[in-house]
Every structure is written in C-alpha cells, then in structure tokens.
Computed example of a mutant assay.
Amino acid sequence: MTSPLRRLAMLAAVSSVFCACVAHADEKITIIVGGINKLIYLPPKLAESLGYFKDEGLDVELQSQQSGVDAENELLAGAAQAVVGYYDHSIDLQAKGKDVESIVLFGLVPGSMEMVRADAASQIRNMGDIKGKTLGVTGLGSSSTFLGQYLASRYGLKTSDYSMLPVGAGNSLIAAFRQKRVDVAWTTEPTTSLLRTSGDAKVLVDLNSVEGTRAALGGLYPASSLYVQRTWAQSHKTEAGKLAKAFVRTLRFIQTHPAEEIAAKMPADYYGGNKALYVQALKASLRMYSPDGKMPPGGPETVLKVMGEFNPNIKGKHIYLSNTYTNEFVDQVK
C-alpha cells in the first residue's frame, strides 16, 4: 500500500473508532424501577431530580413496573440496560442460567412490613397464625413471595397451609385490604403509613429497620439495588462507573439531609395528596438506606438462606454469590 493510501486507511480507522465512541457515550440508558414511587426505590428519581445523571453526562430514562419480576423480564428482553429492584433477583436469575449482578446497593434491609388487616389483628398475632388465610404479595415469584413464605415457615407452616394472592402495591394493595381479599400483605412505605393512619391495617412483622430484620431473618437482608447483566457491566465499564457515582452521591445526600429537604426534591404526585404523611414515612425509612452503595458482609448469605428454602429454581444448585454482586464500581467513587 502506498504511503498516501496507508494514511487514508489509518484516518478512516481512527474516524470509525471515534464515531463508535461518540455513539457509545450518547447511548440512552433505560432503567426499569419496580415501583418508582416506593420509598425503597427512592434513589433513582432523587438522582434524576438532583441532576446527578446529567452531571455524569448520562442520558437516563426511568420507567416503572408494578413488580420486580416484570422489571427483570424487561432487562432480559433487552428493553432496558438496568433495573432497580431487589438484589435477590440476581441469585434467582443465576439459578436460571442468567448472569446478572448488583452494582450499587440502596437498601440494607427490605424496607417493608407484613401488615395484618385491622379487623383480623386479634386473631393473627404472628406469621404462624396465617394458616387457612390469604397472604398478599406484589407478584407470584416476587421477593415478597419468598420473604412471606420464609417468615411463615419459622412457625412451622407449609406453603399449602395458606393461599397467596398477587395484589401489586399502593392503591391496589390498599383496595385488597378494604375488600377483605387478603388477611396479611407485604408492602412498603409510604403504603404502610397510609394503612396505619387510615386504620385499615397494623404492623405484623417489621422489616423496615436493621433491628427488626435481624430479629426476623437472622441478619441483614440487602434489598433494593441497581442490577444489570454482567456482560453489559463488562462492556460498559465507563457507564457503569458513572451510574455508580451518581447513585453514591444520592445516597450521601440522603444521609446528610433531613426528610423534609429530600421530599422537596420529589414529584408532588408522589405525596398522594398528603405531603406530611410522605415526610413521616420517609423519616421512618431513612435508616434502611446504605451510606455507600456497598454490599454488606454476610448479606448475600442471608438472602440465599431465605430464598433457598422456597425458590424451586435454587434448590439443589450451587450459587456463586460472588457473581451476583460487585463493589467494583462503587469502590471507584471518591
């Protein structure tokens, strides 16, 4: 090849690499959230409101689904690059041959409660009393399913001793209580505060605090997180690092600002017409958030213990927990 032709070829190669890099940098990142107005999933909308995604040069679109099961299906179908949902999906998906990992942890505990219908509270005083009753979950096969089953098993109950009904979250769950379609149901803030304030339900099991979670499950139960397909994390290290930085900044904001200031950054329709109640619910939830986005030691083992008893996908299979999460990207944040 002559010298001029060689130079042209080199220029063409450099140009194509440059264009590819630009296209890669401008790529939209779709994040599906398993219920975007739930306080357990507060960080993504807060990060957007604070402008942290834009600070990192990221084009992020947030979408919402009713449950984590729906969100993970969107991720596997390629309709999204990331999901904000419970970490335990990473374990479940590995058992199904899918490589998914959590890259930022938001919740040290589930941030949820098993609530009992107020008129049934005198008969149902713990999860051992749900025999012959109906347990409400967000979706069959969801995190709420396995947690409910595990809590009932600690009182010797089998899954055949009670029925489960998917009731979603928020208004649909509240309606299920009022229509007496469920006796006990798993839910999160601000729905728990709405149910308690209205008198429709009472707390049966508290998984909203570190103390309550340790007592009920025997350890921390890392829950809400940002998870992605491992191949995406490896081929998009720059983007993954920027997402981690935006979310760690968000977690630090939560740790250093009062509930009133955090609530002021959220859309008004998240308040459900009652901002004071939203702030109250947020105050009750602040202690569940991770301060740094890192997976706590022993946490994955607790999750595997709970899931291993009832998830048929996991039974009899060896799970490589080290492949279900990584601190690689949050460790890079100064």
Rank of each mutant, 00 (worst) to 15 (best):
256 T>L: 08
183 D>M: 06
255 Q>L: 11
205 V>Y: 01
253 F>H: 04
218 G>K: 07
228 V>N: 05
197 T>M: 12
196 R>D: 00
301 E>H: 08
197 T>P: 00
204 L>K: 04
220 L>I: 12
207 L>K: 06
188 T>I: 14
184 V>Y: 02
187 T>H: 07
255 Q>W: 01
179 Q>Y: 00
283 K>R: 13
295 M>R: 00
308 G>S: 10
252 R>V: 11
237 K>A: 13
238 T>W: 09
262 I>K: 02
295 M>W: 01
229 Q>L: 09
288 M>K: 12
258 P>V: 14
298 G>M: 05
280 Q>H: 15
197 T>F: 10
195 L>A: 03
253 F>S: 00
210 V>T: 15
225 S>P: 08
269 D>L: 07
189 E>K: 05
234 Q>V: 06
314 I>M: 06
256 T>D: 10
299 G>S: 10
282 L>E: 02
215 A>C: 08
284 A>Q: 12
242 K>N: 02
230 R>I: 04
253 F>C: 01
252 R>G: 04
294 K>E: 11
301 E>L: 10
194 L>N: 14
222 P>G: 05
208 N>R: 10
227 Y>M: 11
315 K>D: 02
276 A>E: 14
193 S>I: 12
214 R>T: 10
188 T>W: 05
278 Y>A: 14
194 L>E: 12
302 T>V: 15
215 A>G: 07
248 V>P: 02
311 N>V: 09
262 I>P: 03
190 P>S: 08
305 K>A: 13
198 S>T: 11
203 V>C: 00
195 L>D: 02
232 W>S: 04
282 L>V: 12
261 E>C: 12
255 Q>I: 09
276 A>R: 15
245 K>P: 03
243 L>P: 08
303 V>P: 01
187 T>R: 03
306 V>P: 03
225 S>A: 14
277 L>A: 13
313 N>M: 11
218 G>M: 08
248 V>C: 04
315 K>S: 06
280 Q>P: 07
238 T>R: 15
213 T>A: 07
220 L>H: 05
189 E>T: 11
189 E>R: 04
262 I>F: 09
223 A>Q: 09
292 D>R: 05
247 F>R: 01
192 T>V: 14
236 H>N: 15
249 R>H: 15
230 R>Y: 03
192 T>A: 13
264 A>T: 07
268 A>L: 06
184 V>T: 02
221 Y>A: 14
212 G>W: 03
264 A>Q: 07
205 V>F: 05
287 R>P: 01
239 E>T: 15
226 L>T: 07
222 P>W: 01
267 P>K: 13
223 A>K: 09
207 L>P: 10
238 T>Y: 12
245 K>C: 07
229 Q>F: 01
193 S>T: 15
315 K>G: 00
186 W>Y: 14
311 N>T: 11
239 E>P: 08
276 A>L: 13
212 G>S: 10
300 P>N: 10
245 K>T: 15
193 S>P: 04
314 I>A: 00
263 A>F: 01
203 V>N: 09
294 K>D: 10
192 T>S: 13
303 V>I: 15
274 N>T: 03
268 A>F: 01
264 A>V: 04
259 A>V: 08
178 R>S: 07
